[in-house]
Amino acid sequence: MASLLVRGIDDEVVQSLREQAAAHGRSAEAEHRIILVAALGRPKRRSFAEVLASMPNVGEDSDFERVQSTSGTPGVFD
């Protein structure tokens, strides 16, 4: 695992971190880790197949067939 050293933090921020850590029963370092993960942690990327599988069934293919206009003039909402 990598280490991270953060310099130049205001004393008030450090004190807030210590107080929050104490309130959660953790060390300041553990609290810092949790804050970083919450702020920067990204959810696992889903595959294209997983995204497709999660889409709801909204009808049959025939419900979405394009209907050609017979009037001879193109219409936006035909």
Results as ranks from 00 to 15, higher is better:
3 S>E: 11
4 L>C: 05
4 L>P: 02
6 V>M: 08
7 R>L: 01
8 G>F: 01
9 I>C: 08
9 I>T: 05
10 D>A: 06
11 D>W: 08
12 E>C: 01
13 V>Y: 07
15 Q>W: 02
15 Q>R: 10
16 S>W: 10
16 S>R: 14
18 R>C: 03
19 E>V: 06
21 A>M: 04
23 A>T: 00
23 A>R: 02
24 H>T: 11
25 G>Q: 04
26 R>D: 07
27 S>E: 03
27 S>P: 00
28 A>P: 04
28 A>L: 02
29 E>A: 09
31 E>G: 02
31 E>H: 02
31 E>C: 11
32 H>F: 14
32 H>C: 13
33 R>C: 08
34 I>P: 00
37 V>W: 07
38 A>W: 10
42 R>N: 05
42 R>A: 09
43 P>V: 06
44 K>I: 12
45 R>S: 15
45 R>W: 09
46 R>D: 09
47 S>V: 00
47 S>L: 03
47 S>N: 05
48 F>R: 13
49 A>E: 10
49 A>W: 04
50 E>M: 03
51 V>I: 14
51 V>F: 09
52 L>W: 09
53 A>T: 06
53 A>V: 10
55 M>D: 10
56 P>Q: 04
58 V>Q: 09
59 G>I: 03
60 E>Q: 14
63 D>A: 06
63 D>W: 12
63 D>S: 08
64 F>C: 02
65 E>N: 14
69 S>Y: 02
69 S>T: 10
70 T>N: 08
70 T>I: 01
71 S>H: 10
71 S>I: 09
73 T>V: 15
73 T>H: 08
75 G>L: 04
78 D>I: 11
